[in-house]
């Protein structure tokens, strides 16, 4: 196991998960998870339903702090600083690590205001800066061509796939270090899924991506590294090819061949 982990670490980690435990009140949902997130790569989190993928992902931007009773133990080190520490303001963490949710959740505002929101809350009000950054973000999210003539229309007028790309643009506009995706295509049809996968593959030039996915094909198609979780534990983490071609663990094999899940 140690050997195998060492083999995997031939990259520059942007974040290191160290002895991470997480509790929902009494329920121990994440159990001693250790792995490193490679910089400017796509890392996929896979595993059967209820194994703790979403829970782990939401540790990275301290979403669990919004609800009482949740407790972290251990750490996630970004530039050597434990972002789960009490002294670290969760707002600071969320400003550096942004998130795209499972169900598209645009604000009931115009397309422009949706994307500009992250800048506005940081106090950016200059119209030229906003215009420029909103355009860049929409281009990165492959939505600019469809949206440029209707920036002042409601985000709710967009299709589901377009709404999800809008949420991606919203998450990109503030130039985060890491973007978290929680099954971003599970509510979408294959064509919309395809366009979002394409855009994510393109994004890794710029940012580190951590993505939860139910679809092993999706993980195989475009992730560089894959972490397999089972019942709150990290069973295996390695290069995606390795995981899919010759997994080291029996449980990973079983899951990939459909015996558990």
């Amino acid at each position: 196991m140690v050997e195998q982990l060492e083999k995997a670490i031939d990259f520059q980690p942007v974040a290191e998960v160290k002895h991470l435990d997480f509790y929902y009140s009494g329920f121990h949902a994440i159990k001693n998870v250790n792995f490193d997130i490679p910089e400017k790569k796509v890392t996929a989190l896979i595993g059967p339903s209820g194994c703790g993928k979403t829970t782990l992902l939401r540790c990275f931007n301290r979403m669990h702090d919004l609800y009482p009773g949740n407790r972290y133990q251990g750490g996630i080190l970004v530039n050597g600083v434990n972002i789960l520490a009490k002294e670290v303001d969760p707002i600071e963490v969320r400003m550096r690590i942004s998130m795209v949710f499972q169900k598209p959740n645009p604000f009931p505002k115009s397309i422009f205001e949706n994307v500009a929101y992250g800048l506005r809350i940081r106090g950016e009000n200059s119209r030229t800066v906003l215009d420029e950054k909103v355009e860049d973000a929409l281009k990165s999210a492959a939505l600019w061509e469809e949206a440029k003539d209707r920036l002042n229309q409601s985000a709710y007028d967009l299709s589901g796939g377009q709404q999800q790309r809008l949420c991606i643009a919203r998450a990109l506009v503030t130039e985060p270090e890491i973007v978290l995706f929680d099954e971003p295509t599970s509510a979408l049809d294959p064509i919309a899924t395809n366009s979002i996968e394409e855009l994510m593959s393109g994004l890794k030039q710029k940012v580190t991506i951590l993505i939860v996915t139910h679809s092993m094909q999706q993980a195989a198609r475009f992730s560089d590294y894959t972490a397999f979780m089972y019942m709150g534990e990290l069973i295996e983490f390695d290069k995606t090819e390795t995981i899919f071609s010759q997994p080291a663990q029996k449980r990973t094999q079983d899951y990939l061949s459909g015996r558990i899940g």
Partner: peptide, 15 residues
């Protein structure tokens, strides 16, 4: 108001 909208705003770093 749906909680997903709150989470969306908090996830952007809103106070």
């Amino acid at each position: 108001i749906p909680n997903s909208l709150r989470e969306a705003a908090y996830a952007m770093g809103a106070t």
